[in-house]
Design a binder for these strands. Structure first.
Length: 797
DNA sequence: GTAGGGTTAG
């Protein structure tokens, strides 16, 4: 038998021990289990504060199941136990269960803290309306709100308030309740004004003025209040006002400086961010993980790799004992820093040395692989990720699409939906890009419909991707419609639309659009010039192209890069001006590398300039001996000159050197279905009937003066299919198929992922004449529109 | 038993 006093002492000791438990302390859980065992062993009844503390420690140590079990064992849980359980359910995001406990609790048992817990639950789950509704009910039932209540309700208010009147009313309620002096409440009230000012629906200036007034009247300000106001100005794009507040601070809390640095960062003012960082160090302001993450991020986005590396070294030297969270967020930004400057292996090293990693770490390195085009590594990395989120899928889908793996990207997009993810605009943009790569118009249209349905069609990423998709699928009108109906456009949109016109042979229109862009005050960048030069090249606008090329450095201070010189060589070669093309190479300020010679060889193939072509090929064999494109271009060049022995010799050379050729395929859109003819060197059964149809066409073509039956092998086929392949190429097959199947008057569209050859170009020209139809054929990224024996590219194929 | 600020990935 114990006496009452002993029992109390013991109970207090248990509670004191349990109060030492906190979720940050990893031994909390076992400590609680020990106390728990002691209590039972000493014959104590589990009740009162002890059981309540146990429930609290258990759920906070991630053992909610046990906490709930304990709760159920109590015959009559008091209001504290109930409050704990409501908090636990809210933290797990299960507001339904939290509310159930709430409703089961009789009115006379409830107190203010009990209401606070439920209101906070709603507020944390971003359900502002329910939080405020409960706040009203609480006051209706005559419970007195306290400082905690207001802090939660105000936080909920920031989610839903969008006008000044509501802010004023809430302000009034706080004043009336007589609690206004608590810093937490004042800070929350300030947040309400500040967040309401960030809403696009209201005029921010008068709300920020109210916020400022509240701030000026505050009797006491803590570091959070300073920070909230600075963030407020930053979010409303008034960096000067934010800086003014920072400069008038008497104390120097690090978090306020962090807010300012992050403000500069998000407004692209990287140098200001870094200057402020230097000042922080000079004044001895406390630096923390947040400072480092922002600063490294500023280095990553602002072009300061070396400085970023210095910060990295500084951290290694001065932060001797950083905690695990520190290593996590700082490590994550360091990964970004390294891969953005092409140091994927450096990024990889940091990743694998990190003691703790989260989804962001994985996603960041995944982006690094994808961005560097290291898709094999990206794929296996993706497969071994322990946790994925929406961004993971998005990065992988658009990465696959942009690196040419269209089918895999679409497969992954479907997989993502099967896994229960609702794609966002970026994911849709990735899928649309995949359709561009594949030329899968029908698929793209279906996605377009879904995008409109889900309301993603007004976003830039989707709009820009759709312009390109429609253009590359041969329907430039649809691309134009997208461009014209987009609520906002950016330089990427202009580029995409100019490219769309250029790729379809509308060179003049492309240039007109470019001029219009200039008139609207948008500055061209390196990519714009690539687009414009391509457009000129495809339309044979030699003079214009030359003029734009010269304007790059003269008017815009942009030094032409290798890719711009490549376009110029292309431009001159298409026009047959080989000496000009050669001059371009000689005048370049750097050594000609493979892309330059490849452009020259491609140009020589088009116009059968054998000597120069051989010269270019020789250079390429030295520079990139295993590249299949050189052999294909060279043999095509010989073929266009009718030098079949040289064709055979080149192909033998390729085999002897063990060069693998990418498999090719061809498809056409007929009756809303995509028909694939040749994939990986296999022949579709329908090829035979097409072949016969083509024979008939050939006869008619002969009558019209075209000489068909070029005797060389279809590049994509091996010997077993030669019987059907001897006289035709896959583009021709596809066109013939379209002519057979599509009703008179319909346009035949062929989307192919190779460059069209001269023989096919001629053949299709005549086919369009014989059939009296419009035929659209894809040639790499651009298109040929054939009509009555003419082609949109004129003489500049 | 309940609240408030700054932070990284496309």
């Amino acid at each position: 038998m114990r006496n009452v006093l002993d029992v109390r002492v013991l109970a207090n000791r248990y509670v004191a021990q349990l109060n030492l438990c906190c979720p940050q302390n990893p031994s909390s859980y076992s400590l609680a289990r020990t106390v728990h065992a002691h209590v039972i062993a000493s014959g104590f009844k589990l009740r009162g504060h002890i059981v309540n503390r146990l429930i609290d420690v258990y759920w906070k140590s991630s053992d909610f199941v046990y906490a709930r079990q304990l709760f159920d064992e109590i015959p009559q849980p008091d209001v504290i136990a109930r409050t704990t359980l409501i908090t636990a359910y809210s933290a797990l995001g299960n507001l339904k269960m939290a509310r159930e406990i709430f409703n089961e609790t009789p009115l006379d048992m409830r107190d203010t803290v009990f209401y606070n817990a439920m209101i906070t639950g709603y507020s944390h789950m971003n359900d502002g309306h329910s939080a405020i509704e409960l706040f009203r009910a609480m006051r209706w039932a005559n419970f007195q709100p306290d400082d905690f209540t207001f802090a939660s309700v105000l936080s909920a208010s920031t989610l839903i308030f969008d006008d000044e009147r509501q802010c004023g009313q809430m302000h009034g309620a706080v004043v009336k309740s007589g609690i206004g002096l608590f810093p937490a409440v004042l800070n929350s009230l300030l947040s309400v004004y500040v967040k309401c000012a960030s809403s696009p629906l209201v005029s921010s200036s008068s709300l920020m003025a109210s916020a400022r007034k509240l701030f000026d009247e505050m009797p006491k300000r803590n570091e959070f209040i300073w920070t909230t106001l600075i963030t407020g100005y930053v979010r409303n794009d008034d960096l000067a006002a934010a800086r003014e507040i920072l400069d008038t601070m008497t104390e120097q809390p690090g978090i306020a400086w962090n807010a300012m640095i992050s403000g500069y960062l998000h407004h692209g003012l990287f140098e200001d961010a870094l200057t402020l960082f230097r000042k922080m160090r000079l004044l001895g302001v406390q630096l923390d993980e947040s400072t480092y993450t922002s600063v490294i991020s500023a280095c990553a986005d602002g072009g300061f790799f070396l400085l970023g590396k210095q910060v990295h070294a500084y951290i290694l030297k001065n932060e001797l004992n950083p905690d695990r969270n520190f290593l996590l967020s700082v490590g994550n930004t360091l990964i970004t820093l390294y891969w953005k400057y092409g140091k994927v292996d450096g990024a990889r090293k940091i990743f694998y040395e990190m003691p703790v990693k989260d989804v962001i770490s994985w996603n960041t390195l995944l982006s690094g692989y994808v961005n560097a085009g290291r898709m094999e590594e990206a794929k296996s990395f993706f497969a071994q990720m322990p946790e994925k989120n929406l961004l993971t899928w998005t990065v992988m889908i658009s990465g696959l699409a942009q690196n040419g793996f269209g089918e895999q990207a679409l497969k992954l997009f479907n997989q993502m939906r099967l896994d229960g993810y609702e794609p966002n605009d970026y994911a849709f943009a990735g899928a649309i890009t995949a359709c561009s790569v594949l030329g899968a118009l029908e698929n793209g249209r279906q996605l377009h419909a879904q995008i409109v349905h889900l309301g993603h069609d007004s976003t830039l990423s989707v709009g820009n991707a759709m312009i390109t998709m429609y253009a590359r699928c041969g329907v430039v009108e649809a691309a134009r419609t997208v461009f014209l109906t987009m609520p906002f456009v950016d330089p990427v949109s202009w580029n995409a639309m100019i490219a769309a016109l250029g790729q379809h042979g509308h060179g003049i229109k492309a240039i007109e659009l470019y001029e219009q862009m200039l008139k609207e005050g948008i500055l061209p960048d390196r990519r714009t010039f690539l687009t414009v030069l391509s457009a000129c090249s495809h339309a044979g606008l030699v003079e214009e192209g030359n003029r734009y090329f010269n304007s790059m450095l003269e008017n815009y201070g942009i030094a032409p890069g290798e890719d711009h010189y490549t376009r110029m060589i292309d431009l001159f070669c298409r026009a047959g001006k080989f000496s000009d093309a050669k001059n371009v190479i000689d005048s370049m300020p750097f050594e000609a590398r493979a892309p330059i010679w490849e452009a020259l060889l491609a140009g020589c193939r088009t116009h059968g300039n054998m000597d120069l072509g051989i010269e270019a090929a020789e250079k390429l064999f030295k520079l990139i001996p295993q590249h299949d494109g050189t052999y294909v271009l060279l043999s095509n060049m010989y073929a266009s000159l009718g030098r079949w022995n040289d064709v055979a010799r080149t192909r033998k050379l390729m085999r002897d050197r063990g060069v693998k050729k990418e498999p090719a395929c061809s498809w056409t859109e007929v009756e809303n279905k995509v028909h694939v003819f040749l994939v990986d060197d296999t022949v579709h059964p329908e090829v035979l009937s097409i072949y016969n149809y083509l024979e008939k066409l050939n006869l008619e073509m002969k009558k019209l003066g075209y000489i068909p039956d070029t005797k060389y092998v279809l590049h994509d086929m091996e010997s077993e299919h030669k019987e059907y392949a001897l006289s035709t190429h896959s583009e021709k097959l596809a066109v013939a198929f379209g002519l057979m199947k599509l009703p008179q008057g319909a346009t035949v569209r062929v989307f192919k992922n190779l460059r069209i050859c001269g023989d096919c170009h001629n053949a299709i020209k005549f086919m369009s004449k014989v059939a009296g139809r419009e035929i659209v054929v894809r040639d790499g990224k651009r298109f040929h529109h054939f009509k009555y024996g003419e082609c949109s590219c004129g003489n500049y194929w």
